[in-house]
Simulated assay, not measured.
Amino acid sequence: MENNVTSKDEGKKNKKCNKSLLQRYREATYEEIFNKVLVPILCEFCATLLHTFYGSMISPPTSPIVHASINRTILPGENAADYVVSALMPALQAGFAVWMIIVVFIKITVIQFNPVMSFSFMLVGLLSPYMFIPYVIAQLFGSATGAWIAQSIKGDEPGPFRIAEGLNVGAVVGAEVMSTGVMVFFGLAMTFDKKYDQATGPMAIGFTIFQGILAGRWVGSSCFNPSRAFGPSLVIGDWKHHWVWWVGPGAGSLIFTIVYMTFFAPEGKAWGVRIPNKFLKEKRKEHPTEVTTMSNNHTSHPV
């Protein structure tokens, strides 16, 4: 009886999985489409807009700023040598912004606001492949909107990510791989494991950004999010070295996703167990006699 019920449930699941995207769209109610498609995409747009806006507003000026109230003019690059202003403040701003945004949207959707995070979530099954492209488009559009608003308010560049002349581009890519990878690892640990109950998870992800910016300070790495770099680049039309902010974070996301899913995923879901088990099952189907012989040889007999 139980086996019949199980087989029926599995049949329903397989039938549902075999349905095309168009079939599922036709069968879905407006409420389902609104809550499961439109709202998450809108959340990605709003989250990336906020992230880019705040980051762009704190960026150092590229033209002189006159403060009449204190009778002083701040020149571009004036605070470049000040560690607190040029490194610590941006790191704190980015870390707290990520923490704040995750907490704001965490009860609505599994917020990502980063194409490489969405890519990782798609690889492990937390994000439907059909939603990946809409998510990324919403993230890029949100970043461009946030950068444009910041530029309109500041009257200055919206904090584009640039690699200064003379810096080692390979070192920047390497730092992006490591820092983004750690961020993705934390994100998977918090969302993929259903038993995860640490309320400080969003804060931990925010502090990976904080640590990553400080760690990459001297090599010129501080992005970890392709959409965050896309908006300012689009607004000012500067695409030099833009590929770095896609290749480095993308590679880090892929590498650390594989590491997490192979060794650290919850019991029964780790690729390090599932893949060998799948291979052994297929081998048993192809060579049932060999498997039977092996099992008979290893059967324990009473003395």
Rank of each mutant, 00 (worst) to 15 (best):
N3V: 13
T6A: 06
L21V: 08
Q23Y: 01
Y25A: 10
A28F: 02
V37C: 09
F45Y: 15
L50F: 15
T52P: 13
T52E: 02
P61H: 11
P64V: 14
A68C: 08
I74N: 09
I74W: 06
Y83C: 12
V85G: 01
S86M: 05
P90F: 10
A91M: 07
L92R: 05
G95C: 08
V103T: 15
V104E: 01
F105P: 13
T109I: 10
Q112D: 09
F113E: 03
V116Y: 03
F119K: 03
S120T: 13
V124L: 15
G125A: 14
L127W: 13
M131R: 15
I133S: 14
Y135Q: 13
Y135N: 15
F141R: 03
T145W: 05
I149E: 00
Q151V: 02
P160H: 00
R162I: 05
A164Q: 05
A164M: 03
M183G: 05
T191L: 04
K194E: 12
G212V: 07
V219M: 06
G220R: 02
S221N: 03
G231F: 00
L234Y: 04
G237E: 07
K240L: 07
H241L: 02
V244P: 00
G248F: 07
G250E: 10
T257R: 10
Y260E: 11
E267K: 14
E267Q: 12
G268H: 06
G268C: 10
K269A: 13
W271R: 07
N277L: 13
K281S: 15
E286V: 09
H287G: 06
T292M: 10
V303T: 10
